[in-house]
Design a protein around this nucleic acid. Structure first.
Lengths: 111, 111
DNA sequence: CGTGTTGCTACGATAAATGTAGCAATAGAA
DNA sequence: TTCTATTGCTACATTTATCGTAGCAACACG
């Protein structure tokens, strides 16, 4: 079966369809993406504070993710440091139920 | 040397806190995790069909992810192939609003 | 028997993340 | 001014994750 077109340059890794959900899934499917959004859910953090919050993740990836999340319009850098944009807050609330799910999941599998 | 995650107490990458949400975020933050759940959202797929659905992702990672998702209790292998468990379906619905968000996000940014 | 599935694995090549170190810019004392 | 002490951010070598191709054994059809 003929594969997709000759897109040598993949926009977002893995996803070549261009479908928004795939692009989003790929962006969020990168290391620390979800975590960063989570840590910024109700606080504005400096880059160092964010690093601390993220288990001392390497600044290299953290900066890379922050750049991507900023370009995506989810995160912005203001006076007090990094924070969520209105859009980012929307996104964050979208998967906020994940928290409750995680607790239930843990009690089901872990106990 | 099948060196799969054969332990229930495996340390999920990045997260050392043990908090359920972190464990979940780390699991879902791996490549293809979210995508697999998404593709199985309303269909049972064979491993090959799933591979096709996932832009021909390499079977190596796909199998690794499937193993992890199975150990997590989100995915199961039945007669017709891979499908979501009841728990997995719950999880999937948890971030289903992401679809609508992605559409809105896409129309806002660029285009 | 051959042909075609299935789930799954080996393994070299490539891409991504880690960990440590350090940069320039800024701000507040002294 | 100079001495700290932050900030956001980057270099770079090492380690880890993923890719891509190939192929396995098991099972089902004919």
């Amino acid at each position: 079966m003929a594969k997709q077109a000759d897109s040598k340059k993949r926009r977002v890794r893995g996803s070549r369809t261009g479908r928004p959900i795939m692009t989003l899934l790929d962006l969020l499917g990168q290391r620390w993406s979800l975590r960063i959004l989570w840590e910024l859910r109700d606080a504005t953090l400096t880059s160092r504070a964010l690093r601390t919050a993220c288990d001392e993740a390497s600044p290299t990836v953290l900066q890379a993710r922050l750049t991507e999340l900023r370009e995506a319009g989810f995160v912005e850098l203001g006076d007090g440091g990094y924070g969520l944009t209105a859009l980012g807050r929307e996104l964050c609330e979208t998967f906020m139920p994940l928290h409750r799910f995680a607790e239930r999941w843990h009690s089901k599998s872990g106990v």
